[in-house]
Design a protein around this nucleic acid. Structure first.
Length: 819
RNA sequence: GCGGGUGUGGCGGAAUUGGCAGACGCGCUAGAUUUAGGUUCUAGUGGGCGACCGUGGGGGUUCAAGUCCCUCCACCCGCACCA
């Protein structure tokens, strides 16, 4: 009987499907004696075809799920589709196929492909975010956020992707380009919907410290994105200013350097600028400058370090020393951070230093390095480190960190400043001018104004009679039927909000819906969710480090605060798997180095694909696809197949014989393998787990070749190999289990006593260099081992009569002789 | 610029706590089986004739360093005028 993956894989997949083999029958976890384990892979976007990245992601999750199941856990392992989004809409425009149809076709095809990999999902729990019974609750969450002040509409200067014809969240702009399509992102002044994620900035930052099971890299990326900084706001009077131009407030993290402040800078797009420059001699020059900056794209503006500026014609007064300093417009000040106004201290800030040099502004030292007296004219760059205050009034001579606090207190006492904490994190812009998304559950009533719908009016169904323009206004505007609504407050005619929600909104809570996917009365039941959450192991690509993973954390905290669940963090452990490369670069159509999973499955079977992908590299590292190494894994599975079936026929012959030495060797290999594979899977070292199984298979072959024929032992070996293989290559494992009549029901254990051998081999070093290996009885005293080591001929020869200064015996490891 | 990661045979990688560097696999070489190719099996495979030398380079700690410390280099990823 030959190994035929195509036949057995289909057989087992059908079996699993027909018996709902991986269905989690409990409504709640923890009701049974078993412990729950929630393993989750990031759900897929229904592009139509699985790629190797999916195969890797989902195989990792499946190994964990199958292993935990065999260990007796109640494993929650669901899959679904992140089904709203632009590609469906673009495909609709291109192929004249409704997005819904395109998406649904792709979803069912991808579910089939996943089943073809033998992934053990609880299919009954699948959720698709584009279905009304899901997005009803996405909309409901919006209403909850709205009612609690966490969703609001405001006019603002937002990111605009011209190709996607929609606005984008800050997180979706990567170095000035659209995260999706790579187009250069522009700015537009629009009224848009936001979620108040900034309310959670501090908690999102603080709780990162508790996420010990997350990669350091991801935690740091989030911390940087949140970008907390401590400082002060200080108000400067404007010389000759009154009314709107009475004063300006700056944000600074270094108020201790304020005696070195020689000018002030305001962002050119700051709304007060027009008023400020009006009627000054500089008015025309400033207007020209503002226009110039306006016409620069985001990329042009940020890609240059060149600092450009112009004097406004105005002066401001430093409240600490009453000095008048000039007020400049400059490209290097950002409107949307702090107050949009900055006090410039060239001596202690590199940007200010460069600007001051260029425009010949004074440089004044206010912090000296400890024990030094630097002259400002000698500076070749700014001095940003700590030191002692210099020429700074009553604070002169004080260590700057101490002065910093005291100077803020002084500002507070004199009513011109206060302590201030700032974050880089902005509120999350969630409206999109696109069709294929969850409609925002808001209507505009001529009488009542902006009205948020109540739960009984949900879902707001996405209409199908819509024109796709791709022109930047929401396609929903073209559906009169949709746009026309009744105001829930007064019952009068009202208009619907035409924008839809960012798909990241839909994916920020799907892991909660999996816990209670069929609930038609609620988004999810609190008790049920509490019994499963948090996700014990989340697995996905690192590209979501600050998008999905930050939003999902925000949703979890907000929903917890509203009383809908207990967990304040969604994902206890996170594994970010590496990319699948071919010839050193990412698989992509344009490079032409794509290896399709289908092709591999057809040629070698899903088990081989899974084995290769788990064997070729540790999960978090990039993995280079290698066709001949894939064949190697196929060879290995054939080798396992032959070994087990051959053993089986020997066992059935019943001619058993014992050979203590051979039997001991095999028994030792067997037990150490079981221990190693268990340990390795626990620590996600799947590659070494597989290599250990390979070693055992090699030993098992040698055993037979040398005449080993202990039937009971061979039976154990066959059974345990099959169980250990199950998480990685479930089809062949179950088929072999059936052949040898040993159903796989639980993980296997090892016999610790079998790991203790009568004799052990001890390496002997001289000065740390290996010279010989000696064999001593297990458990020998240091003295015995030492004597044996010194007896060795090789050691004697290497010592060549030299004096032995010291002998170090490390039990269970080695002997080192120091000469 | 700031932050993080990586660097080990021809290749992917192993060495979990400072203790035999190169497990396991690919590739390669030779042989057996075979009409032949493929499959399968066996042996070998870091370098050097050797003493020895070898984990990106240099230095250090230690009886012992891929692993710890200092320093330099290369590549990759993230952020990037955040005051």
């Amino acid at each position: 009987m030959l190994y035929n993956p195509q036949v057995i894989e289909r057989k087992w997949q059908n079996k699993w499907k027909e018996s709902d083999a991986f269905k989690l029958t409990n409504d709640k976890a923890k009701q049974s004696d078993a412990k729950k384990y929630y393993v989750l892979e990031m759900f897929f976007y229904p592009s139509g075809k699985l790629h190797m990245g999916h195969v890797r992601n989902y195989t990792i999750g499946d190994v964990v799920a199958r292993y935990k199941r065999l260990k007796g856990f109640d494993v929650l392992h669901p899959m679904g589709a992140d089904a709203f989004g632009l590609p469906a809409e673009n495909a609709a425009i291109k192929n004249k196929m409704p997005p819904k149809k395109w998406t649904e076709q792709n979803i069912s095809s991808m579910y089939e492909q996943l089943a073809g990999l033998g992934i053990s999902y609880d299919w009954e729990r699948s959720v698709e975010t584009c279905k009304p019974d899901y997005y009803k609750w996405t909309q409901w969450i919006f209403t909850q956020l709205y009612k609690n002040g966490l969703a609001y509409k405001k006019k603002s200067y937002v990111n605009w992707c011209p190709d996607c014809a929609t606005v984008l969240a800050n997180e979706q702009v990567v170095s000035g380009k659209c995260e999706r399509c790579g187009s250069e992102v522009g700015k537009k002044d629009l009224e848009q919907w936001f979620f108040k994620i900034t309310n959670y900035a501090q908690e999102l930052l603080d709780d990162l410290d508790n996420l010990k099971g997350w990669p350091e890299k991801v935690r740091l990326m989030q911390a940087n994105w949140i970008g907390r900084s401590e400082g002060a706001e200080i108000t400067f009077d404007i010389a000759g200013g009154e009314g709107d131009t009475k004063n300006l407030t700056v944000y600074t993290t270094r108020p201790d350097t304020i005696f070195g402040c020689t000018y002030m800078v305001i962002a050119p797009e700051h709304p007060i600028v027009a008023e400020l420059i009006k009627g000054t001699q500089q008015e025309d020059e400033c207007k020209n400058f503002i226009n110039k900056i306006k016409f620069m794209s985001e990329i042009e503006r940020t890609s240059t370090d060149e600092k450009l500026g112009v004097w406004t014609g105005r002066y401001v007064i430093n409240p600490y020393n009453n000095e008048e300093i000039p007020l400049y417009l400059a490209n290097y000040v950002l409107m949307d951070y702090g107050t949009g106004v900055v006090m410039a201290v060239p001596a202690h800030d590199q940007r200010d230093f460069e600007f001051a040099k260029k425009y010949n502004l004074p440089i004044k030292i206010s912090v000296q390095p400890k024990g030094e007296q630097v002259k400002s004219g000698d500076l070749t760059e700014s001095f940003a480190a700590d030191g002692v205050l210099f020429e700074s009034g009553q604070w002169s001579g004080m260590p700057n960190r101490e002065a910093l606090t005291k100077m803020i207190d002084y500002a507070q006492e004199n009513n011109f400043g206060k302590k201030k904490i700032n974050f880089k994190l902005r509120d999350w812009l969630i409206s999109r001018q696109r069709y294929w998304g969850a409609p925002i559950p808001i209507v505009y009533c001529p009488k009542c104004g902006e009205v948020c719908l109540d739960e009984q009016d949900l879902p707001v169904i996405l209409p199908e009679n819509v024109e796709f323009t791709g022109k930047g206004t929401s396609p929903l505007l073209t559906s009169e039927e949709f746009m026309h609504a009744k105001c829930p407050k007064c019952g009068g005619d009202a208009k619907r909000e035409a924008d839809t929600m960012d798909t990241f909104v839909c994916s920020s809570w799907y892991f909660l819906r999996y816990c209670d996917p069929k609930n038609s009365a609620k988004a999810f039941d609190r008790d049920v969710v509490d019994s499963f959450m948090p996700v014990d192991q989340y697995i996905g690509g690192v590209e979501h480090a600050v998008l999905h993973l930050l939003y999902a954390r925000f949703f979890t905290k907000a929903l917890a605060d509203l009383g809908y669940l207990s967990a304040r963090e969604p994902f206890a452990n996170l594994l970010t798997q590496g990319m699948v490369l071919k010839d050193g670069s990412k698989m992509s159509k344009s490079v032409g180095n794509v290896v399709s999973p289908e092709e591999i499955i057809q040629k070698y079977g899903a088990d081989t694909a899974r084995m290769f992908i788990m064997f070729a590299a540790p999960p978090e590292r990039d993995l280079d696809w290698n066709d001949s190494a894939v064949e190697g894994l196929y060879r290995f599975l054939n080798r396992v197949w032959r070994l087990v079936t051959d053993y089986d026929s020997v066992i059935k012959d019943g001619n058993s014989s014992e050979n203590k030495k051979l039997d001991d060797e095999l028994n030792f290999a067997l037990n150490s393998c079981v221990k190693k594979v268990s340990d390795d899977i626990e620590r996600f070292a799947f590659n070494t787990a597989i290599s250990s199984i390979m070693e055992l298979v090699n030993v098992a072959y040698t055993y037979r070749a040398n005449g080993g024929a202990n039937v009971a032992l061979m039976q154990q070996v066959a059974q345990k190999i099959v169980v250990m293989l199950e998480p990685f290559a479930p089809h062949i494992a179950n088929e072999l289990a059936e052949i040898i009549g040993f159903p796989i029901t639980e993980w296997i254990t090892y016999d610790a006593s079998a790991l203790v051998q009568a004799n052990i081999e001890v390496p002997v070093q001289i000065n740390g260099k290996l010279k010989d290996k000696i064999v001593v009885p297990t458990g020998s005293d240091d003295d015995v081992i030492k004597a044996a080591a010194l007896e060795s001929d090789k050691v004697k020869a290497a010592l060549d009569g030299a004096e032995v200064r010291k002998v170090i015996v490390v039990q269970g490891k080695l002997v080192n002789i120091v000469k």
